[in-house]
Design a protein around this nucleic acid. Structure first.
Lengths: 211, 211
DNA sequence: CAGTAGTCTTACTCGTGAGTAGGTACCAGG
DNA sequence: CCTGGTACCTACTCACGAGTAAGACTACTG
């Protein structure tokens, strides 16, 4: 296995992709600190100086990973959501897109959610930036559709709670992969749209057919 | 400042408490990996070998911190909750106790939520254990009070979502400390009990007076 | 078939931090 | 005033991992 001498010559862009993929994999498994540049270079099938030549320091590499994965995820959600619809439909499509992305791309999700948020450095900035975009998206959805005089703070905190519920449920889902994405998404939709109060009485929210 | 020579002689139990307090403080600020035993010993006003003599290795120390803080927190919640009440009242009192604990004990919360969950090792076990207890508490509450034939998996995932929402909102709260605990708790209560659907229509849940 | 630009490597340096060896001060009870 | 025993210290060892120096290999260009 360790018999590979020199790696095959490849154009820079291709190598950079390989390295990033390896980095996301290793960071997701080991976390930022425990991950070593040696291991990343090994997984990428390349030697360490290449890593430094192409992607800079360990911190830069990590930040680049976060940026890439965050962008991929936000694009997936943006693509999935349907604007100019009723609030509940918008929320529903957003949730579906989110859980769809997490279902594939488990490693990406680990890096984004677990690792990035626990490092205090410049990473949290990148991450919180994305998270803030998600939160204000939901907050806007809430504000525009509510009739009650909700304050900015109120909408924001509710949105934070909802986003957190999504994150947490995604984590839970990682341990129960037998459930399909749609089911999990629908469950969260029911919780945040109907509330326990209604669920207890047997009133549920129905997604597709009507409309 | 660095002029202290020898520390005053104290009984072991007292020193252990001091060390634990220092450890929670440092771990919460720096995270597990970045925290050094040197700094912990410094903050505790003691030298490194004492640390090893009393609390063992770094990992043992961290695990002990988690266990202590988790226990403190679960006790706080258990004390605050009111059994033999309507489901919504039980949930409400649980939420109040939770946010009350986080309000004081910020450091404890950081260690528990951010640090412990991001380390894959034996720590996650400790933590997930406590989290599982919280989740099944909520799941039981849900199951016993619902009329719909909710599956075990369904109740569990909803509970996970709720717990996650609480955690996330607690994190958000750390950045907006101006809000009192009760307000934040009430907001989450509204979200999970009434749901956005009702909130949008201006129907809110009222906590105390009636009953 | 030079020359040169970009890919790739081996083999180091050097700081940092976990864990320890081998003591010194202080307080019993005899 | 000796004799332990427990709290406490200074000053190390040693591994591991980030980052680098210096050069070798390949391929295209005139």
């Amino acid at each position: 296995m360790r018999t590979e001498g020199r790696a095959k010559r490849l154009p820079r862009a291709v190598r950079e992709r390989q390295i990033m993929d390896a980095a996301v994999d290793v960071f997701s498994r080991l976390g930022f600190h425990s991950a070593s540049m040696d291991e990343i270079s090994e997984v990428a099938g390349i030697s360490k100086p290449m890593l430094y030549a192409y992607l800079g320091s360990k911190e830069e590499l990590f930040a680049t990973c976060i940026r890439r994965e965050a962008t991929r995820m936000m694009e997936a959600i943006a693509t999935g959501v349907e604007p100019d619809q009723e609030p509940d439909v918008q929320l529903w499509s957003g949730l579906r897109a989110f859980f769809g992305f997490v279902g594939e791309n488990r490693a990406s999700w680990m890096v984004l959610h677990r690792q990035a948020s626990s490092q205090g450095g410049p990473f949290a900035v990148e991450l919180m930036d994305m998270r803030a975009r998600a939160v204000s998206l939901v907050a806007a959805l809430l504000t525009q559709s509510t009739k009650a005089p909700a304050t900015k703070l109120e909408a924001e905190s509710l949105a934070a709670a909802l986003v957190g519920a999504g994150e947490s449920l995604a984590d839970w889902w990682l341990d129960h992969p037998e459930e399909p994405a749609g089911v999990v998404a629908a469950r969260l939709m029911n919780l945040v749209w109907m509330g326990f109060g209604d669920l207890v009485d047997g009133n549920v929210w129905h997604p597709p057919s009507r409309r």
